[in-house]
Amino acid sequence: MTLTLFYLTSAVAVFATVMMITRLNAVHGLLYLILSLLSVGVLFFLLGAHFAAVLEVIIYAGAIMVLFVFVIMMLNQGQTTIDRERAWLQPAIWIGPSLLALLLFGEMAVVILFGGSAETGSVVTAKQLGMVLYGPYLLAVELASMLLLAGLVGAYHLGKPALKSGARS
């Protein structure tokens, strides 16, 4: 049952990701990305990482993707953009990087498959997670908060309207 669900969800995730990277319209790509993220969230649930699954849905598919939506709205990509994207997506352009990436995938597959097999599925509860997070990983939490703060300041600075074009040139 679980295994079936796993394969199904994996197929959805791969399909959504492939669709996402090939979409010409950014909004369509974004919707496929959300689908991909949600399916990965389901996978987390299947793997017994319930807390991670919840975070994946709330923060990734929710909060972060909303940011993308805002930005896409602000940039107002129209039909011309879509035409240009089509012109950019010629086989001559994507065949090389794809082969390179496939080479990398082949190598990783070899490494993973030669590593032997093992079962997963031990459930890690939110309480366990919290005890470890605020125990040995306290410093990492602090660092993450600093990183978020830096990201906040950076995003605020870069997004300021005062930095209009020509302000520095």
Partner: peptide
């Protein structure tokens, strides 16, 4: 791309 190629090479060497 350079980074990806580098990663591929490193994996190959490690293997």
């Amino acid at each position: 791309s350079s980074m990806a190629l580098g990663a591929a090479l490193i994996l190959a060497i490690g293997r």
